[in-house]
Amino acid sequence: MKQFLFLFLLACSPSLLLRAQQTSPDSLLPVRGFCIAAPKPGDVDRFIKFIDEELATRKVNTLILRVDYDYRYKSHPELADTNALSKQDVEKLVAACRKHNMDLIPQVNLLGHQSWANKPGKLLAVYPQFDETPDVKMPDKYEWPNADNLYCKSYCPLHPDVHKIVFDIVDEICDAFHATSFHAGMDEVFYIGEMQCPRCGGRDKAELFANEVRLINDHLKQKNRRLWIWGDRLIDGKTTGIGEWEASYNNTYRAVDMIPKDVIVCDWHYERADKTPVYFAMKGLHVITCPWNRPAVAVEQTNDMISFRKTATKEMQPYFYGMMQTVWTGTASFLDGFYNKTPGRNNSDNTDWKCFVDMYNVIGGL
Rank of each mutant, 00 (worst) to 15 (best):
L335D: 02
D131F: 02
K40E: 14
K137W: 01
C200V: 11
L220T: 02
D89Q: 00
W228F: 13
V357G: 00
L16Q: 09
I363K: 10
I363E: 04
R272E: 11
L79N: 02
H163L: 11
N293R: 12
P198D: 12
M186T: 03
R225Q: 06
V265F: 02
M258E: 03
P39I: 11
P134A: 06
H100E: 11
A147L: 12
K119P: 02
I288N: 01
H178P: 08
R58T: 03
P41A: 06
I264V: 15
V170A: 00
I51R: 07
M138E: 10
C197T: 10
F4P: 00
K205V: 11
A80H: 08
I173K: 01
H76A: 08
L366A: 09
V362H: 11
P291G: 05
M138C: 03
D304V: 01
A20I: 14
W353M: 07
A255I: 00
W245H: 14
D135P: 01
L124W: 10
P30K: 10
W228C: 00
E271I: 11
D336Y: 10
N303T: 05
Y155S: 03
E188M: 02
H76Y: 13
N340G: 08
S24V: 10
D236H: 09
L150S: 05
K2F: 12
G237E: 05
S24N: 09
N149Y: 08
D267W: 07
V297R: 11
V166D: 05
V170T: 01
H178N: 12
A184W: 02
T351C: 13
V299H: 01
